[in-house]
């Protein structure tokens, strides 16, 4: 049996009285196109925060390619090939996209700590930044201040900077959240075109996007995994229908 790219074992998270992650045992296979869906407040973001090291789990384990990373710092997880994006933009408002992507590239190349080379003159960094800017339709805004970018462009930058780490596992927390219809297609195109050897976990509310993208789907409800199956299985699963009809406003 192939080893999962990313795996959690009995993961639990409590926020005071809120039980946000309930005993989640989950597998993401190498190269997977996997969606994680669930109603608002189901604990999807909290789950990703534990995978990426932003939040420590209350108990349970996280394994990346078989190695226990439960207590590993976020930056070291990135170095091991685990990257993520954020549901709410987490960008560097006073830096340009060129600088933003450049830092991620520099860290991956292991030269982020160099003190006396010139960042802006570095050929290796520049080449990769230009390539990513092309892929993510950021070429025309590379030297603007990030805070001044259109929202859709900021969402694309969220993705580009995560990809700059050349991850083998990529966690996307609602990449198209809040993007106007006209610009959604850009984001979708980019997500569809992600390298096929990267395992992708996509969190998304838009069911059209979910079914266009995912081969497997997991459903999280009130912190617990309700079902896990192929897209076709999930589409006809009565429990999932009940959850979404009960919620009323999704799918």
């Amino acid at each position: 049996m192939t080893q999962p790219a990313l795996e959690t074992i009995n993961l639990q998270k409590h926020f005071g009285g809120v039980h946000a992650t309930r005993d989640v045992t989950f597998r993401l296979m190498p190269g997977a196109r996997h969606a994680l869906i669930g109603p608002n407040g189901a604990g999807k973001t909290t789950f990703v925060n534990q995978l990426s090291g932003v939040l420590p789990p209350s108990s349970g384990r996280v394994l990346l390619e078989g190695i226990d990373i439960t207590h590993l710092r976020p930056d070291l997880r990135v170095r091991r090939g685990l990257a993520r994006t954020f549901q709410i933009n987490q960008l560097f408002k006073d830096l340009t996209p060129r600088q933003t992507i450049g830092v991620a590239v520099a860290q991956r190349l292991g030269i982020g700590g160099r003190m006396f080379s010139h960042f802006a003159a570095d050929r290796h960094i520049a080449t990769e930044v230009d390539k990513l800017a092309d892929d993510f339709r950021l070429g025309d805004v590379l030297d603007l201040r990030t805070a001044d970018l259109a929202y859709g462009k900021q969402r694309l930058l969220e993705l580009a900077v995560a990809l700059a780490a050349k991850p083998r596992v990529l966690l996307l927390d609602e990449p198209a959240a809040g993007v106007p219809e006209a610009e959604r297609r850009d984001i979708l195109g980019v997500v569809q075109a992600l390298p096929s050897d990267v395992a992708v976990l996509l969190i998304e509310h838009d069911m059209d996007l979910v079914f266009a993208f995912a081969e497997r789907i997991s459903v999280l409800v009130e912190g617990a995994l309700l079902v896990d199956g192929t897209a076709a299985e999930i589409a006809v699963d009565p429990r999932v229908r009940a959850v979404y009809l009960g919620e009323g406003n999704h799918g």
Binding site: D75, F86, F92, A165
Partner: peptide, 8 residues
Amino acid sequence: RAAAIGVP
């Protein structure tokens, strides 16, 4: 975010 792109 700095940590999430690999900055120690």
